[in-house]
Nucleic acid binder design. Structure first.
Length: 754
DNA sequence: CTAGGGTTAG
């Protein structure tokens, strides 16, 4: 609206020269001095009151620019109470007859977010000009009432007023906030009719409208048509690319802009930087950084936040930290970027130690934020809950739940979804269900979270009921929802139901199956021992079977003792040159147990060729806001540690009630290949569980996260431990959740390296 | 008019 007010002022001043309505350009004070009011003049709060009190009696006439100065100040400071004072004053001096003063007043009420007052004032105006109409429309659009804005536009046409190009730009913005392409197209037709599509403001608005509606091509066409493109035009076009997933195009456009000698502003630079981080191009981002310095925006808070985000998303935590420390002005976005950045690093470093270190670091930032006095918002809470879910920090998650409640963010559906997800991932389906039921709005994602949660906890019936309830409330499922639904069927061995849902998904919801769905279907056939059917299914898929599909099939073959098919599938798998260490471990296990040692060395050779790393295995347990991690170790040294000794005692106890240790592969040391097929009792998760049993209150379930899949031996062992200790033990491995209660596991006994 | 944080996936 900045250009509006300056236009209004210039227009008014021009008019002023011809028809002076008010007294001369200076106003005599009581002391006989003259004060002149200029547009740029600022008043301190005291002067402000004083300026008004001088004219309180309302005996003298006041010039327009007096009001413009005061109102400009009210507008800049968004001060509603001061605006009311000026308004009251204008009523006394008779300035309310002046359409320009009143239009400006409408604009200031709009800026203060008070649409009711703006409308009332507008309705009482003796005359309305295009500025007033436009201001009102823009006001509704900016104060989240875009529909009202469009109604006012029709009212304006009906009243016989002609919209200016600027009015049309403002109406387009209202369409953009409604994400209504249909309305936008209607106005576009109107714009073509009045030949204003070449206008800068109209073109800018068209560009951002089409971008918001996901029509990048139209947005760029609108941009190209603008005759006199300004920085805003270029910035709109560049960010349109970024918002529509065309970062490379956006960066090219940015280069074009630079080559045309258009100087970018902080908006352009932040948009470009965020596009760089989106496509992981630290290189380009670094070049943009030098431009930020060149154009003097390096210390701009928004620019700094984007730079910080760029570095943290590219894994340069050190540089992000350095930027953070160098900022003397920090806002919530800065904190959120640090927290979310660490959370994202956790995902990237999933299978190694730094993952949990990143999690702890992020939680430290969260407590620092809490101490800083800045209030966390829904973004902060969502991120932090995700971190708790990853490290299974239930206690901290509960504390954050309480904080969310106090801060009043519980009704936010995204925070609620994160909460449900956190409880699910921490293995507490009861609390997840409770949080879910307390939500007043249920989106597709929230339903999906809950369905998946039931499914992961082995509660197939509840998962399917959830899905039917979701359909009853007319929330449309997506591909992810069906991952949960199909998994529930697979888990309970409901073959026909699964096939039925698989068809409904495609025919009724027009969802093309992706690898996740195929994997579950294959997994289901395999669980039921229907290996031939599984193979037929794989052959009929409309995409090339992946590493994971074959792995699931091979695991099934081993489980059902059909090595013929297993060997066949292994050849298919090897021809794909797998990249995942766990895939190779599966094959090594299979060939080793079958005594096919030539194949064992063939697989090992291939691992070296493909530069597949060792199996990095870590387990973590959170106790009282602290995370403890354990590594699978070779059996020579842990005896010296207390925890190793306790684990040995536990193994001995389990053996006395029937536990038999199984042989499993451990690729710990490449130089000691021959030794790798020996039973290892010091699995990381076994150490973590032992630690948990000793350090948690006896009523407390033991919750452990593991970076790789559970092996058959561990799975069996933990069952015994759950019976012996009478404790609930929850282990989340790289693929699924295992909840052990009284010798039984929720996963249905079909897992990983079986 | 234009920018910077977030949720779901056996």
């Amino acid at each position: 609206m900045a250009s509006f007010s300056s236009t209004a002022v210039t227009a008014t001043l021009k008019l002023h020269e011809h028809s002076r309505k008010y007294s001369p350009s200076s106003y005599p004070t009581e002391k006989g001095q003259s004060i002149s009011f200029q547009k740029s003049q600022r008043f301190t709060n005291l002067d402000f009151r004083e300026a008004l009190s001088l004219t309180r009696e309302g005996t003298q006439e006041v010039e327009q620019s007096f009001y413009f100065s005061l109102l400009q100040q009210c507008k800049d400071e968004c001060s509603y109470s001061d605006t009311q004072i000026v308004h009251g004053h204008a009523m006394k001096t008779g300035a309310h007859e002046d359409v320009y003063v009143m239009s400006f007043l409408v604009e200031v009420y709009v800026k203060c977010g008070n649409m009711d007052d703006a409308r009332k004032l507008f309705d009482n105006m003796p005359r309305r000009n295009v500025f007033a109409w436009t201001t009102l429309i823009a006001g509704y659009a900016q104060n989240s009432l875009p529909k009202h804005g469009i109604l006012v536009f029709h009212e304006m046409l009906h009243a016989g007023s002609y919209p200016s190009a600027y009015t049309l730009a403002v109406v387009l913005n209202a369409c953009a906030s409604l994400y209504s392409l249909k309305l936008g197209d209607q106005f576009h037709a109107y714009i073509i009719k009045y030949h204003v599509e070449f206008d800068t403001n109209v073109g800018n608005a068209l560009c951002s409208l089409y971008s918001k509606c996901g029509k990048l091509e139209y947005a760029l066409k609108a941009f190209r048509r603008i005759r006199e493109k300004n920085v805003v035009s270029w910035t709109s076009a560049v960010s349109a690319c970024g918002d529509n997933g065309a970062a490379v195009k956006g960066l090219k456009l940015f280069l074009e802009m630079i080559s045309e000698n258009i100087e970018p502003n902080e908006f352009t630079l932040t948009s470009v930087l965020s596009q760089c981080s989106g496509i992981q191009s630290l290189q380009f981002g670094t070049q943009v950084r030098t431009l930020c310095v060149k154009f003097g925006y390096e210390s701009n808070l928004h620019v700094r936040n984007s730079l910080l985000s760029l570095h943290i998303k590219n894994g340069c935590i050190g540089e992000a930290q350095r930027l953070f420390n160098g900022m003397d002005d920090v806002n919530l976005v800065t904190w959120n970027a640090m927290i979310a950045g660490h959370a994202q690093m956790m995902e990237l470093t999933k299978d190694n130690l730094s993952s949990r270190e990143n999690g702890s670091e992020a939680l430290k930032f969260f407590s620092k934020l809490n101490r800083s006095g800045i209030k966390p918002d829904l973004y902060t809470f969502s991120s932090v809950l995700t971190i708790c879910s990853r490290i299974m920090a239930l206690e901290q998650g509960e504390q954050i739940h309480a904080q969310i409640m106090k801060a009043g963010f519980l009704s936010d559906v995204i925070v609620g979804s994160s909460l449900v997800n956190m409880y699910n991932k921490c293995g507490s389906i009861e609390r997840a269900t409770k949080a879910f039921l307390e939500m007043s709005t249920r989106t597709m994602i929230l339903w999906t979270s809950m369905i998946t949660g039931f499914s992961q906890h082995g509660m197939s019936q509840q998962a399917l009921h959830g899905f039917e309830d979701m359909r009853l409330t007319r929330v449309k499922p997506n591909a992810v929802t069906f991952v949960g639904v199909l998994a529930a069927c697979s888990h309970a061995g409901m073959l026909n139901q699964a096939l039925n849902y698989f068809e409904i998904m495609q025919k009724k919801y027009r969802i093309t199956p992706v690898m996740d769905h195929y994997e579950i279907m294959v997994d289901m056939f395999v669980r039921l021992g229907k290996l031939e059917q599984a193979l037929n299914f794989i052959k009929k898929m409309n995409c090339v079977p992946t590493e994971s599909i074959w792995s699931i099939f091979i695991a099934g073959c081993r489980n059902h003792g059909n090595l013929e098919l297993g060997f066949y599938a292994a050849e298919q798998l090897l021809s794909l040159k797998p990249k995942d260490t766990e895939t190779y471990v599966l094959l090594l296990n299979m060939y080793n147990s079958a005594g096919r040692f030539e194949d064992v060395s063939r697989v090992r050779k291939m691992m070296k060729e493909e530069k597949v790393g060792k199996l990095k295995d870590w387990s973590w347990i959170s106790i009282k806001n602290k995370v403890y991690s354990f590594e699978t170790t070779d059996k020579t040294h842990p005896e010296s540690s207390v925890i190793g000794k306790s684990l040995e005692d536990l193994v001995a106890k389990a053996k006395s009630v029937g536990y038999e240790m199984l042989e499993s592969v451990e690729i710990l040391d490449e130089e000691e290949e021959e030794k790798t097929f020996s039973p290892t009792i010091y699995h990381s998760e076994k150490l973590a569980i032992t630690f948990g049993l000793e350090n948690l209150p006896s009523s407390c379930p033991v919750r452990v996260v593991k970076s790789t899949l559970l092996c058959r031996d561990s799975h069996n062992f933990i069952k015994y431990v759950s019976t012996l200790s009478g404790r609930e033990i929850i282990v989340r491995d790289s693929k699924r959740l295992h909840k052990f209660v009284n010798g039984k596991c929720s996963c249905g006994n079909f897992c990983g390296f079986l």
